[in-house]
Structures are given as structure tokens and as C-alpha cells.
Amino acid sequence: MSNNAMLSVKDLTSGYGDKVILNGISFEVRKNEVVGILGANGCGKTTLINSLCRIISSKGEVLVDGTDVSTWSNRVFAQNCSLVPQKSGIGIDISVLDVVLMGFNPFLSLMARPTKEMVTKAEKQLKVFALEDRMYDNFQNLSEGQKQIVIICRSLVTDTKVLLMDEPESSLDFAIRYSMLDTVSKQIKETDKCALISLHDVNLALRYCDKLLLVKDDSISSVIDVTAEDRITIEQKLKTIYGDIKLLSVPDSENKESLIMVKA
């Protein structure tokens, strides 16, 4: 394990029943790093996130900041890692602010209520995503995209070291998915966190992730270092997953070169 690896996964095998979905996967995510998981539908992106979150059982070793998580209680685990699921299952009427405050649960004892400081933090986090005027609204009355943003706020509001996101962009429109990942990546860089994000949108991944894990045939087929590798190398690696594609280099609004993937 390298010295600044925040999340280290060694030889992870997992699946459902007898069916192996991921076989002996190993990788690392360093402090301040945003790592994306790419792959076709059903390749095991969600299985990987769920295995790391211990939602489904798996074999192998997972270290967070150098500590084996297997002995951690759910509470200790949640103090260190937070999850943004594909879709939140909250099925009751509850205010948006209360949903964000749920993020503090691992840090509160049974009798404790969220402190004023926590409430202020939650309000600030909602403000970052321009949802402060909805904070007392019923979570159920929000659009699916807004709900997803609230769940992202819930994960970002605390000081967990590892942020795990499972296709967080799936219900967001074009503009919001870019601003969401822009904000998430900035927060990861500014704090001592790291993020592992499973994504469908390759262009989003190329723009905001430092590294990309390409999952194919129950393992990581290759790793792309977005910041270090050239366009041709990245294109070759992406072709192994997406087939006949082309990577174009276009200047963005800040005149930086940005890679976009198109069907050839």
C-alpha cells in the first residue's frame, strides 16, 4: 500500500449466491483523489460499491487509511465512509434538512440530537447546491434529480474519509451533473477525502476523475491515469470497453484541453 492511500482494496471477490461478479480485484484511491469506475451495464460497478460498503458480502481485504475495516462496526465504518446510492430508498415524509442531518447519525450517540453546528453545516451544504430555499420542504416533493443532490449533500456534510458514489449522475440533467461533479471534486481536493465514483457518462469521468478503473469480465481490465496518459493511450483503453469510439480533444471555457468520447 502506498503511503497516502486512503482506500486500499486487495483481492476483492464478490457476487450473488454462487455467481461471481468480481474476481480478485485490487486497487487504491489516494487522498484528494477522485477515481471513477467505468464499464458496461451489468459489469459489476454497483456490486463493487456495495461490496466496499459491506451491503453484500465479499472476500478480500479493504483498508481505509491503513486500517482493516472488517472488524469495524457499522457505526465506525459510517464515520469513515459515506455512500451515495443510485437512488435513495427514503419512503416517508421528511424535510430536506432532516435528510441531510441523517449524515451525522454515525457521529451521534443514541440520546443525542444534531447540534446547532451540524444544522449550520447542513444548511451550508444545501446552499452549495442552491437548495437552501427547499430545506424545510418535504423530501418526497422534490424531483428525482433534486433528491439525488440532497443525498449527495448528506454524504458531503460530514468528515468521512472515503466517499463512495454509485452512478450519482443517473437522474441529473446535463448542466446539473457537471456542476455536481465539479463541486464534489473541489470538495475532495480541498479536504482530506477521496472519492470512488461509478459512472455511466464517460465524458464526465474524463473531465473530473484523476484515475479511471475499467471493469470488464469480473475484473479491472485496465486503469487510466487521466492526468498523465495521452489521448491515444486513453482511447485505446476505452475501446476495450466501449468498442468503436473516438476521443476528441476540445478546449473548454478556461481554454484547457478537455477529452470527449464520441461514437466513431
Binding site: 451491503i55 457499522n74 464515520q79 455512500l83 427514503i90
Partner: peptide, 9 residues
């Protein structure tokens, strides 16, 4: 899974 990741047993 969500409840588990919010620290709940």
C-alpha cells in the same frame, strides 16, 4: 444498505 451506511445496525 442506505441505513447501514448511516451507521445503523
Amino acid at each position: 444498505g442506505e441505513a447501514k451506511m448511516l451507521g445503523l445496525n
